[in-house]
Amino acid sequence: MSNSLGNITTIAKRELSAYFASPVAYVFIVIFLLLTGFFTFMVGGFFERNEANLVSFFLWHPWLYLFLVPAVGMRVWSEERRQGTIELLMTMPLTPWQAIMGKFLASWAFLALALALTFPVVVTVKYLGNPDLGVVAGGYIGSFLLAGAYLAITCLTSALTRNQVIAFIISVVVCLFLILAGWPPVTNILTKVLPDNRWIVELVSAFSVMTHFEDFQRGVVDSRHLLFFLSVIGFSLFSTSVALRSLRS
């Protein structure tokens, strides 16, 4: 057990150091912060709302992550395949599952760092008004899980190809589907097209990250939503292990 934890840590450390070895990591964080700032304050109308909450901040996260998370995760396995280092990794004394977890957790930690660096937004609301910090915490937890779900999907697509760009594109498409399935403009159309079959609409939107992210933004940490994100992550990572195994036979 401790051995397995040790292996995961070693892999995760290597991944993280790989992120920070190139300027891409810093560029990513800067872009992420600039975009969140831009959307929150300019597009989201943070000040016009005149409310002491972060609705206009979290609102944009599913859309921002749509491009930023695949950009972070696309190299995780495809680069390993392209360079052939997967042959080293898979002949070292660790299980594929440990490698998958190590890589995933490292990238997730990186995204968490980027998310944590948005704290000035919280400081701003706190300065301007009296926000419910529980609601803010809920939003952050939801956003973190959302990033994890996108990231796990990206890990899977990147295990399927040795081309990072293809991994990126497929991840964006899949994640976009997960947004649109529960995005009000889309669900409204669906309701109109299928007025008698509300259950279909509900089934489709049950697969959407929007449906599950909403409650978090209101500060509600519901176990059903938690379970949804964790199952997306678990399922994607499990499929990653299947993909990696099939590619070796």
Binding site: T10, G84, E87, L88, M92
Partner: peptide, 26 residues
Amino acid sequence: YLPESAPCYSDMTVHGFLSFAAEIRG
């Protein structure tokens, strides 16, 4: 094991790469 194409993690230094290899070997 030394694979045919001698793959190495190109984003690391030689020292970093070898330390990683030692660590993953326990």
